[in-house]
C-alpha cells in the first residue's frame, strides 16, 4: 500500500513539476482528491493510496485542500478529514483561519478537523467561536476543544453545559469527559437531569472518568436524587467508580421496589465485585422475578 502511495506521489508530483507553481500542485491535488474521495466500489482500492499521497504532499497541498472545504458532500468532507489528519500540524494555522469563514460548511468542517488533529496550537483560535450564533458551530468547536484536551478550555465547556441547545450541551458533556477535573463534578451531576439523553449519558461518562473526586458527591446525590432518570445514571456511575462506599446504597437499591433501579444496581454491584456485593446479588437472585433484573444478575454471574 505504501509503495502504491509513493508511486502515486511521484507520478503526480512529477507531472505537476512539468507545470509551474501553485497551479501544478493544484492539478495534482485535484486529481488525487477525486480518487481519495471516491466511494465507488469499482475504485475502492484507489482511495487509501490517494489519501496517503495527499498526506505526503504536506503543507504544499493545504491551500488547495482548504479551498475544497466548501463542499457539502459528506464523502468529500470525510476525505478531507482523513487527509488533514495525515498532513497533521502544518495544516493547523490555515484551518484556524477557516473557522472565521463566511461559508458555514467550511467553518464547521474546520472545527471538526481541528478536533481530530488534537493540536494545542488551535485552542486560542477555537475559543473565539464558543459563543458563535450557529449552534452547530458552537457544538463543533466545543467538541473539538474537548478532543484537543487543553485545560484552558474547561470554563467554556462548563458554560456550554448550560447552552440553550441540547446538542451543544451534549458536546460539552462529551468534551468534559476528557478531563479529570474535580471542579466539573457538580455541574456534571446537574447535567444528569438534562432533558436529552446525549447530555445525561455523556455527563455520566464524564463523572465516571473523574474517578475518586466524584465518589463523595455521587454518594450524596444518591441519597436525594433529583429525578428518576438521573437516579438511574447515578447508580450506573456508582458501579463505574467501583468504590466500596457505594456498597450500602447499592444493596438498598437492589432490594428496592423499582425494577429498573434494581437492574442497574445489580450491574453496579457486579462492577464493585466484592464478596459482599456478590452476596447481595445472590440473595436478590433467589427472590427476583423481573426479567431485566434477572438478566443483569445472570450477566454478572456468567462474567
Amino acid at each position: 500500500m505504501i509503495h502504491f502511495a509513493a508511486l502515486f506521489s511521484i507520478l503526480l508530483i512529477s507531472t505537476a513539476a512539468a507545470q509551474t507553481g501553485a497551479d501544478s500542485i493544484n492539478v495534482a491535488v485535484d486529481s488525487l482528491f477525486v480518487r481519495a474521495s471516491s466511494i465507488n466500489v469499482y475504485y475502492f482500492e484507489l482511495v487509501q493510496p490517494s489519501k496517503e499521497a495527499l498526506g505526503k504532499m504536506g503543507a504544499g497541498a493545504v491551500p488547495r485542500l482548504v479551498e475544497k472545504m466548501r463542499t457539502q458532500d459528506a464523502r468529500e468532507m470525510q476525505a478531507l478529514e482523513d487527509v488533514f489528519k495525515l498532513i497533521g500540524p502544518p495544516a493547523v494555522p490555515q484551518l484556524v483561519d477557516v473557522l472565521g469563514s463566511e461559508n458555514v460548511y467550511r467553518r464547521r468542517l474546520a472545527a471538526r478537523i481541528l478536533g481530530e488533529l488534537k493540536d494545542s496550537s488551535s485552542v486560542e483560535g477555537l475559543l473565539k467561536y464558543t459563543n458563535d450564533d450557529d449552534f452547530r458551530m458552537r457544538g463543533g468547536v466545543i467538541s473539538a476543544l474537548g478532543k484537543v484536551g487543553h485545560k484552558r478550555a474547561i470554563p467554556k465547556m462548563r458554560e456550554a453545559l448550560r447552552d440553550q441547545d441540547y446538542l451543544v450541551r451534549t458536546s460539552a458533556a462529551v468534551a468534559l469527559s476528557n478531563f479529570k477535573d474535580s471542579s466539573n463534578v457538580i455541574p456534571l451531576i446537574k447535567a444528569l437531569s438534562d432533558k436529552y439523553y446525549g447530555v445525561r449519558y455523556s455527563a455520566a461518562l464524564a463523572l465516571s472518568n473523574i474517578g475518586k473526586p466524584a465518589v463523595r458527591p455521587i454518594v450524596d446525590a444518591l441519597k436525594v436524587p433529583g429525578d428518576t432518570l438521573s437516579y438511574y445514571q447515578l447508580i450506573e456511575i456508582a458501579g463505574n467508580l467501583a468504590d466500596p462506599r457505594f456498597l450500602e446504597p447499592l444493596v438498598k437499591i437492589v432490594n428496592s421496589g423499582d425494577p429498573f433501579a434494581r437492574a442497574f444496581a445489580a450491574e453496579a454491584l457486579g462492577k464493585l465485585g466484592s464478596e459482599a456485593a456478590m452476596k447481595a446479588l445472590q440473595d436478590r437472585y433467589e427472590i427476583e422475578t423481573h426479567p431485566l433484573v434477572i438478566s443483569k444478575i445472570e450477566a454478572v454471574v456468567l462474567n
Partner: peptide, 19 residues
Amino acid sequence: LSSLKMHRGDLTFRGDYLE
C-alpha cells in the same frame, strides 16, 4: 425506555442539523 434510562422525549430528531 426506562431500561435505557430514557424517556420518550429522548427519541427525537431535528430538522436543523443542517440549514
